[in-house]
Structure formats: structure tokens, C-alpha cells
Write a protein that binds this DNA or RNA. Structure first.
Length: 357
DNA sequence: CTCCAGGTCC
DNA sequence: GGACCTGGAG
């Protein structure tokens, strides 16, 4: 087996082809950690502006730990997978409280941090501390499965184990950090999921998938999550300059973000204003109702298809005290436009609000 | 429109 | 093993 050929080629390819990205010019574990969390399941182009903002507003782990979690969620707005933002904040406090403000300097200890799993621990340990631990992310799965012709399902525990063993054997003792960067960058730029650039590939002559016409077929991934359909009727309740909002709770999507009171229906075609218990209750306040029935927002998550309609209810400003009392009793809050702007909201709500302008 | 990216937590 | 988000590519 030409095992040293592979890392050698990658280490040669990398300096000539790598992108100049801000987190690559530092060994500061805080900055590296920040970039890794932001880049999980996220493309560089989408994550980059968020990274810049976070570094600017939270230059040190102390700044992040001291910030209110609402501010962190607001800054994360639009990036998705909001548990990353909650874990990010929790992890910063962990580093300050349990580790005296210094990130742990090895793979084992890094794993104890909230939101830091095997991939991220390996990335930080190698990039910041030169520890020889192999990263295993989607890029690495793809490059290894193609080059070595490994066709085990990468979503199975067995597949993950096999790939990790292979990755651990391949990583060189000399420049483990550079090698980890190289193989991921190679997957991102050269050995891409679709239309891999095999014509000008430095590994072409020894690549299993290229020789066997398997480039498109690898890696093998079986899992596919089934998508459920949901139907929301959102109630935009206005009273003078105030709106009624709700902080989303646990065990559902958008945890910790802010949206409007809603009634969920069994199917999109079942959405009916008159069947909303919320709408019925609100009649007591004699609202002016604006319901554009035909306008349905469709919002797609990886595992849910959400159809939502919005009804706008305007209540006379004099009834604010009554409305507030009602909102309190339902677990809702009252806020003005500026306060709403400062809260993290799902993109569906952001889209709706933008349409109202 | 469908498919896809891809790491952690519970 | 399923839940979690958004946006870009085709």
C-alpha cells in the first residue's frame, strides 16, 4: 500500500491551492473554536460574515461568556442550527469558569466542552496545539472513500469506525495540522460532491474511484430523514406600537428564538381562521382583522416542511393593559419594534416582517 | 421543484 | 438513530 504517497501529495497540493481564510492565520484556540462551530454544516461563504461579526463583538472568550444569550442568538440569526449558538455561549462560560479562561490544550479535554464533538476537538487540538489527531468530516469521508474505494455506509457506526481508523493511519507525525487542513480543503475545492475535478487531480493516477468509474457513487450514504409536513397559523397581534411575541421552548424547532403566537393545524389545507382558538379568544378585544388567506409561506427545514399563514390583528392602543394581562397569562410577551429587532428570530419570521415593509 | 451540505446532542 | 436550519446548486 502506498500509504505515504497520499499525504505527501496532499501536503504538496495544499499550499498552492488553499483559500486565504481569516481563521487560518492564527493559533489562538478561541478564534479557531469560533470558526469551527460556525462552519459546522455551513459553507464558508455563508459563515464568513458571521465569523467576522462574532470576532468583532466578542474578541475574547470572556466577552462571549459575559454576553446575554439573547444577544448571541440574535447575532446567530439566519445561520441555522441554533443549538450551536446556545452551546457556543455555554461553552464560553465553561472555559471561563472551569478552565480559567484558557481552552484545554488537548483532544481528550476539549471533548468535555459543550458543542465540541470528535471533529471539532480534533480540529482545535491539531490546529492550535499541533496534536496528531485526524479530523473526520464530510470532506474527509468523501476523499478517503473515493481514493481508497471504501464503500461502507458512512452514516453507520461501523463506517465511521473504519474511516476513523484509516484517517488515523494516514495522518503524518510531521505536520498533522497542515495535513488536516489539506485533506478538508482538497475535499471542498477539488474532490467535490458533484462534478469533481478529476481531469486535473494530483491523485488521479492512484485513485480507486477514478480508475473504477465510482467517483459519483462514493461515498455511500444510506440515511435519509423523512420529512414531516406542518401547518402554522401565526397571529401578528398589534396594540399601538407593541406586538405580542413568544419565546420558543424546548423539544421543537427554533428553541430560544422569538416568533408570534401560533395555532398548529393537522395539514396546510386545514388552516382556517375561524378554527383558531387564539383568534376566537382575541375577539374580546374587538381587533381589526387583516387575513390574506391566499398568501402561504413555505419554509423548508431538513426534516420539516412548514406551511404558514399569517393573520394580522390590530387592537386599540387603550386596551394595552388588558392585552398585556392576557399575554402574560398565555406565556407571551409584549415588545415594541426595536425590542423585536434585537431578538433572534427564525428566517420565516424575518421574511414575513420584511414583506410587511 | 429536489437534493445536498455534515457535526453534536439526546 | 433521529432531531436540528438555511441557502445554494442543479
Amino acid at each position: 500500500m502506498t500509504f505515504s504517497h497520499f499525504p505527501k501529495k496532499l501536503l504538496h497540493w495544499y499550499p498552492q491551492n488553499k483559500r486565504d481564510l481569516p481563521w487560518r492565520n492564527t493559533q489562538n484556540p478561541y478564534i479557531i473554536w469560533l470558526s469551527e462551530i460556525i462552519l459546522q454544516q455551513t459553507r464558508v461563504a455563508q459563515g464568513l460574515p458571521y465569523f467576522e461579526e462574532f470576532v468583532k463583538h466578542y474578541p475574547t472568550v470572556h466577552d462571549l461568556a459575559n454576553a446575554p444569550v439573547e444577544d448571541v442568538l440574535r447575532r446567530w440569526q439566519g445561520l441555522g442550527y441554533y443549538s450551536r449558538a446556545r452551546n457556543l455561549h455555554h461553552c464560553a462560560q465553561q472555559v471561563v469558569e472551569e478552565f480559567g479562561g484558557n481552552f484545554p490544550d488537548n483532544y481528550r479535554s476539549l471533548l468535555k466542552l459543550k458543542g465540541v464533538g470528535q471533529y471539532t476537538a480534533a480540529a482545535i487540538a491539531s490546529f492550535a496545539f499541533k496534536e496528531k489527531v485526524a479530523v473526520l468530516d464530510g470532506n474527509v469521508f468523501r476523499v478517503l472513500s473515493r481514493y481508497f474505494g471504501l464503500d461502507t455506509d458512512i452514516s453507520s457506526p461501523k463506517g465511521k469506525r473504519q474511516f476513523q481508523e484509516l484517517a488515523d493511519e494516514l495522518i503524518p507525525a510531521q505536520q498533522p495540522d497542515e495535513y488536516n487542513q489539506a485533506i478538508m480543503e482538497f475535499g471542498a475545492l477539488q474532490c467535490t460532491p458533484k462534478k469533481a475535478n478529476c481531469d486535473q487531480c494530483p491523485l488521479q493516477d492512484s485513485c480507486y474511484a477514478y480508475a473504477h468509474g465510482q467517483v459519483e457513487a462514493l461515498p455511500v450514504k444510506i440515511k435519509k430523514t423523512k420529512v414531516t409536513t406542518r401547518a402554522f397559523l401565526y397571529h401578528e397581534i398589534n396594540c399601538g406600537p407593541h406586538k405580542i411575541v413568544k419565546t420558543r421552548g424546548p423539544k421543537d424547532i427554533w428553541q430560544g428564538l422569538t416568533d408570534f403566537p401560533l395555532v398548529e393545524f393537522s395539514a396546510p389545507e386545514k388552516i382556517e381562521l375561524e378554527h383558531s382558538t387564539l383568534f376566537q379568544e382575541l375577539q374580546a378585544f374587538k381587533p381589526i382583522v387583516d387575513y390574506k388567506n391566499e398568501k402561504t409561506y413555505k419554509h423548508i427545514l431538513s426534516h420539516q416542511k412548514i406551511f404558514s399563514n399569517f393573520v394580522s390583528l390590530t387592537i386599540a392602543a387603550e386596551k394595552l393593559d388588558e392585552v398585556k394581562k392576557w399575554a402574560d397569562s398565555k406565556g407571551y410577551h409584549c415588545c415594541d419594534a426595536a425590542q423585536l429587532e434585537a431578538l433572534g428570530k427564525p428566517q420565516l419570521i424575518v421574511r414575513y416582517l420584511n414583506d410587511q415593509k
